[in-house]
Design a protein around this nucleic acid. Structure first.
Lengths: 190, 190
DNA sequence: AATTATACTTATTAGTAAGTAAGTATTACT
DNA sequence: AGTAATACTTACTTACTAATAAGTATAATT
């Protein structure tokens, strides 16, 4: 059953991704995944020997996803504001899933994570911050966006608004997140 | 030994506060606290029967702290910008302790927390957001600060910058946090 | 002086965590 | 046809986890 095993491996990763964002690294277990897939704990260990490997796999999918998105955005025939809105929408969706973003999840558990994971997370964060910074720089160059800070600084400001925004929304509701998004779009629009 | 027991109870709370911000709710154990205080696990259960009670105690100290700070700020003969800087400094200090803010910590673990804690956290968040919003409104009224958003919205923007800023700093270093703080002070200064 | 409350320790329990070793069925390779 | 690799399951271990019950020493109360 070679084919089924490949499905299982990606299915494990998909569920691990959700659990990471919903519960965090220390709050989900192999049993949670096994239950959802109707397999045994040990089957997960076959594909991902240690929990560390599982988390590395999860981070890898995000790195690939954002590398892909970055390339798509460069070529896309849409305004910089639309590109940014696309990115923001990714965060908005999380709230309905009672999830936070993977970076926030990893940051909260950071002191309990193995070194290998920490290094890979750094790579992911740089990737995302640079992608937003580039979109901002491009938008300002084209006269579509306006802001006084350096693109990377503005990227940090927006990223922290979004990351903590979804965390806050978990507790106080989506209204606060929507307010944040509206305000930051108003800031750079024009 | 009545006196010593009171010390123990507050000492437990102090260590629990640190562990919450450093590791999160699910990553620290009664054993971690017992070890640091040279007492037994069961001694902690004597003062805080369940982990839920311990977390409720931690949140309570923050509610008291911020209620106290709020009253102090109203009477303080300093500028609104200085009041805000005082608040920001509280976040800056966390980074050197490899900690994140309690709200971010609780938000990340939110889906695993008992209902009683969730309700108390909501109270804490409202308290902090309102405090910052009031300081902002007062500052603008006095002509010390400038911003175009509603005070509460601007409070949300600044709070999310700070909360996610310390989380980011944990991974990428304090430089990013300092950049965020500089940028948001530049925005409202004047 | 006797009783009771406080603040613990010792000892234990039931449950859950990650991880492993060995066995099994299926598929691919030679 | 025989061997080896793949993808598991079964069964188990070790190491915690929060939580509890029962015992003990000290201090406060009556």
């Amino acid at each position: 059953m070679v084919e089924k095993s490949i499905d299982t491996k990606t299915a494990i990763l998909t569920i691990a991704k959700d659990l990471m964002r919903q519960l965090g690294y220390n709050a989900f277990s192999y049993a949670d995944i096994a239950q959802q897939l109707n397999i045994k704990n040990a089957a997960i260990h076959y594909h991902y020997p240690a929990k560390e490997d599982l988390l590395l796999g999860v981070i890898d999918t995000y790195i690939e996803e954002y590398q892909h998105l970055g390339k798509q955005l460069i070529a896309a025939p849409i305004s910089s504001l639309q590109k940014l809105s696309l990115f923001i929408e990714k965060y908005s969706v999380l709230i309905d899933q009672k999830s936070i973003c993977i970076i926030g999840s990893v940051a909260s558990d950071y002191n309990t994570l193995p070194k290998s994971v920490r290094e890979k997370v750094l790579k992911l964060i740089d990737l995302v911050i640079d992608m937003v910074a580039q979109t901002l720089a491009e938008g300002r160059a084209k006269g579509e966006l306006t802001f006084s800070e350096e693109p990377k600084t503005k990227s940090l400001l927006i990223m922290t608004n979004l990351a903590a925004g979804v965390q806050l929304a978990r507790i106080t509701g989506k209204k606060d997140f929507n307010e944040i998004v509206k305000a930051l779009l108003d800031q750079i629009k024009k």
